[in-house]
Design a protein around this nucleic acid. Structure first.
Lengths: 203, 203, 203, 203
DNA sequence: AATGAATGAGGGTTCATTCAT
DNA sequence: CATGAATGAACCCTCATTCAT
């Protein structure tokens, strides 16, 4: 029977993760010190080590949970749509509707940085690779369903299109996070949507 | 062994930059220590500081020179082509012809990491932003020329298409550097080329 | 061993300063390494940086606090004396009563070294200059008071005499710290006191 | 038969010493790097090591030669004076006539610094101690001669007075080099001269 | 004789992690 | 539980000295 409720601990944990995210967004993983996170989260050094056994674990946990959550949210958003067209439009809408804030740019950088760091490490490489495929397959499935009901052209190679889609998304986000041209961002998405839709949809 | 030729010094400098690049590719900027570079380049700690006054300067110089060199090479390759179609095909070819080695994946990561790091620093942000625009404008110009001679449809928004093009390139490279799926890489480029060419070229 | 009292921290701080003083006295500022201080104070390298943000700050703080403390002690000693003669005698006594130890010679050297270092730095120069004037003015005031009550001759130029006094003190200390002739030290003070007293006092 | 004349080498040596002096005056012994001296003297690093086997030797040589030269010059200046009074007046004049430049303040600091450094080293301590005594004895002898011919009071303790004299000189110079008050400097010397002369001379 | 590239030990400083309180 | 003082390995950088040319 713990003195402190499980709920409290969970909220503390979330708060630590969130603080860490803020800091990583500000300075990047390596340049962020545990002291930064302590300062931001208004806790103590020791406490963080009660929840996470190292800076790296904190980082990996954070990124893992974020990715999972994002993916889950993504899937949930699609429950209410039935046609492939609607679903793909929704996919674009997610990005088109993003509020173009400095905060979001920071989040993108955290994500990109994580990919790069992961790719360099034996143990995280596999995970990242699978995660990417998860996202790709999600779109592949939508396209395949569209093909089955005649919405999407039979000859469309769903995996290629899915790959292209995500490449475009991530490329645009990367550029936006670095260059930060708000106008171009929106226009790019609209035009790409048009391009892809024209290509895959049956008329 | 003093009083060496300028040429010798220049080669030394290049060799140091190359060693640094290797190391940054292996571990990333922050995790690479000066000792790593010393070990890789078979020199001594002090010597590096005769050529570059800090690790950061070494890094910035390296990235600066690489970008300039790449851009110059890019432009040179286009001298012999006259039509927009040929030029854009060549642009795709550059990436399609890349040897898909681990080394190249590392180079991509170094480049991506640099963007992210730059975006976080006041003094490098501007530079990176301009560099991106340089690349985009290069393609914009090709498209505009194509429009003028009737190769490319008048209604094509060259800046949007250029942005999309580079977003796709960088997104694909980023994914490739992380996931490393050789097959998908090639197919993506072919399909995207088809998509874009169909969209912009007059029939 | 956290959550310690302010008092504990203060004592730690003092202990670090004292250790530093010992080391600087032994080897001088530049030649003293942080490792020396660590070894002497039986702490760890990192801890010192919790209290002082650099070696230089540690040094400046040390010297600043010492000077202030010395000056305060000096003034306190004079509370109980009322005549100028007594006060000046007391001033001489302070130095005549010094225990002529190797430790004291080291302290002198630290002080002299600090002056020289300070004189070479823009930011410390002003401070040192004022500090010197503080000492001089202290004596000037005593002399002026003596003049007012007729103890000291009206024609005595108090600032010149004060300057001469301190020049003699510091010169003697400097020599003593270098040459270390115990006999001469005492005799010099006695004779100088005689000289100055004869010169300034009304008979 | 050397290719380069002995004379040339001697001049080179002098030039190196002078450059070193300038640099030490600017930054102090420890903070002056061999590169500083190379830059100032327009030579090469290797060359310096042909003349002096280490930075320390260069320093010790410099200070040794300067002291010797100064002492010799001092003695030479006194050849033409016959009475003790004239000689002591001349001694004061040397310092009173100094041009009060920043350069001279630097020279004082170099000298003071040297004393402090010397005092900390086994091997230089003895030398410095003797050098000081040399100066003191020089004055002692003058006073003794004065006593012998009746110029100076018989009861004057020549060694004490000599010690006081040099203490005052060095104290004043030290203060001047740090505080740099041109007016006070002159007045101090005049007044001290008066004080001492009154005390020792027979009327 | 003169040069200055090369060396590497050593210094100041940072920071993830631990653990006594 | 929570704290933050304490630790020390590891990092970047400097600079006296050497030696091939």
């Amino acid at each position: 029977m713990p003195k402190v409720s499980e709920d409290y601990k969970e909220r503390k944990r979330e708060s630590l993760l969130e603080s860490a995210l803020k800091c990583f967004g500000e300075k990047g993983y390596q340049s962020t010190t545990m002291d930064d996170i302590v300062a931001y989260s208004n806790t103590s050094k020791g406490l963080i080590y009660n929840y996470f056994k190292s800076k790296e674990e904190l980082y990996l946990t954070l990124m893992e949970e974020r990715t999972n959550h994002t993916f889950k949210t993504l899937k949930d958003r699609f429950e209410k749509f039935s046609t492939a067209k609607e679903k793909i439009e929704e996919l674009f809408r997610i990005y088109k509707d993003k509020e173009l804030t400095e905060d979001w740019r920071k989040l993108i950088r955290v994500q990109m940085e994580f990919w790069i760091i992961s790719a360099r490490q034996e143990n995280t490489y596999e995970i990242m690779s699978n995660r990417y495929k998860q996202y790709r397959d999600f779109l592949v499935q939508i396209i395949e369903e569209g093909k089955n009901v005649g919405e999407i052209k039979k000859e469309v190679q769903s995996d290629i299109v899915a790959s292209i889609f995500w490449a475009f998304i991530d490329g645009t986000c990367l550029h936006y996070s670095v260059v930060g041209d708000d106008n171009s961002y929106k226009d790019q998405f609209n035009k790409t949507e048009e391009l892809i839709m024209n290509y895959i949809l049956n008329t």
